[in-house]
Design a protein around this nucleic acid. Structure first.
Lengths: 113, 113
DNA sequence: TCGCATCCGCAACCGATGGTTGCACTTTAG
DNA sequence: CTAAAGTGCAACCATCGGTTGCGGATGCGA
């Protein structure tokens, strides 16, 4: 398979994508601060952050009584790139199929039916 | 949200992505034929095809005792497009952050530290 | 310093879902 | 007509996203 299923699994969840969105927008965040902006509990967010951290998409850093999370730009860039590659591959295949379909249409027309 | 979570959910599963891959490559397939090419049972494939069909990413057509599935090009094109848009948005945000980071670096350097 | 408010982690529990096995039903092939 | 192939339905299990409830650390104000 051309895709790294690990990264897909991490970014496949909508809540985790929203977390990445917020982290990208705000630069940083904690489980509590992020859960304020999402319709889920702090514990749910904490679990997701754990998944994202295991996928190395974010990095945590304990600061006093809070744990701050930051996007790991390198890994996230890899993920975005893979996303783009899958999209491009599918797009290409789709285009090829469409061409074939049109060719058949054309042949039908030329053969008089 | 900029993303249609319905399509993401459908394409979020690795097995379903593989199914789409095979359908795009072969043009068509049945639950049985597709399960031969994947490490899952026919019933699992059948369930996935049901999900894909409800998301209108594929179309089924009963032919004798088999049920053939074909990619719904229009809907799949929409999905690919959305995928590309998310990738582009994230890429842009990533680029902006990187620029900011470099700017700060630059300022630190200029201010003599 | 003491107490309270915050922020966190752990554990139990629930519902949805991806996956399996087993069985019965229809259709094609010989 | 009988056997094989293809399908659908149902029960069951594990995992996962989500919740509530609790107890443990840390910061802050009186």
């Amino acid at each position: 398979m051309t895709v790294d299923d690990e990264l897909w699994a991490a970014l496949g969840d909508p809540t985790r994508r929203h977390l990445m969105d917020h982290l990208l927008a705000a630069g940083t965040g904690t489980a509590t601060s992020l859960s304020d902006r999402l319709p889920v509990t702090r514990q749910a967010v904490a679990k997701h952050l754990g998944v994202l951290e295991r996928a190395e998409l974010v990095v945590s850093h304990k600061d006093g009584r809070e744990v701050r999370y930051v996007v790991n730009e390198a890994q996230f860039a890899r993920a975005v790139e893979q996303l783009a590659m899958v999209g491009a591959a599918w797009d290409a295949r789709l285009r090829r199929i469409k061409t074939i379909a049109e060719t058949i249409q054309q042949q039908r027309k030329e053969s008089g039916r």
